[in-house]
Amino acid sequence: GLPEGWEMRFTVDGIPYFVDHNRRTTTYIDPRTG
């Protein structure tokens, strides 16, 4: 799974992105792969 505090969501286009609730940021880069 994802690191603690992270969540995976999808855009309206079906593109996955990642929400970091710890820092309240979003990124398209998987936190597991950097």
Rank of each mutant, 00 (worst) to 15 (best):
W6D: 00
T25V: 15
P16T: 07
P16W: 06
R9M: 08
Y28I: 07
N22K: 11
F18I: 02
D13W: 11
E7Y: 09
W6A: 01
D13S: 12
R23D: 11
P3H: 03
R9T: 04
R23H: 15
E4W: 13
L2Q: 02
V19E: 05
Y28G: 05
D13M: 11
D30I: 01
D20G: 01
G5H: 08
P3T: 03
N22S: 10
T25E: 14
V19L: 11
H21L: 10
R32D: 03
R24V: 09
E4R: 13
N22W: 10
M8S: 01
I29R: 11
E7F: 08
W6R: 01
D13H: 13
E7L: 07
D30V: 00
I29L: 11
D13I: 06
P31N: 02
T27V: 07
I15L: 09
N22A: 12
V12K: 15
T11N: 09
T25P: 02
I29S: 08
F10I: 09
P3Q: 04
P16G: 05
R23Y: 09
D20Y: 08
G14F: 04
E7V: 12
R24N: 15
D30Q: 00
T26A: 10
T26L: 14
Y28W: 15
G5V: 04
F18M: 00
T25Q: 11
Y17S: 01
G5W: 06
T33G: 11
P16E: 05
P31F: 02
I29M: 09
E4Y: 12
G5Y: 05
M8Q: 08
V12T: 13
W6N: 00
R9S: 04
D30S: 00
G34T: 13
L2Y: 03
D20F: 09
G14R: 08
L2T: 02
R32N: 04
E7R: 05
R9I: 05
R24F: 11
T25M: 14
P16A: 10
V19F: 14
D30T: 01
T11D: 15
M8Y: 03
P16D: 01
R24W: 11
E4P: 14
P31Y: 03
R23Q: 13
I29V: 10
P31T: 02
V12A: 14
N22I: 15
I15K: 10
Y17Q: 04
D30H: 05
D13A: 14
F10T: 08
P31L: 01
R23P: 02
E7H: 08
P31C: 15
G14W: 06
L2N: 02
E4L: 13
L2A: 03
R32I: 04
V12R: 14
G34M: 14
H21N: 10
R9N: 04
P3N: 03
R9W: 07
M8F: 06
T26H: 13
G34F: 15
T25L: 15
T11M: 02
R24A: 14
G1T: 12
I29Y: 09
T27Y: 07
I15R: 13
R32V: 05
P16N: 03
Y17L: 08
P31G: 01
R9E: 02
Y17A: 02
T27A: 04
E7T: 12
V19T: 06
T25S: 09
P3V: 04
P31R: 01
G1V: 14
T25W: 15
N22L: 14
D20E: 06
D30Y: 02
L2H: 03
N22P: 08
T11S: 09
G14Y: 03
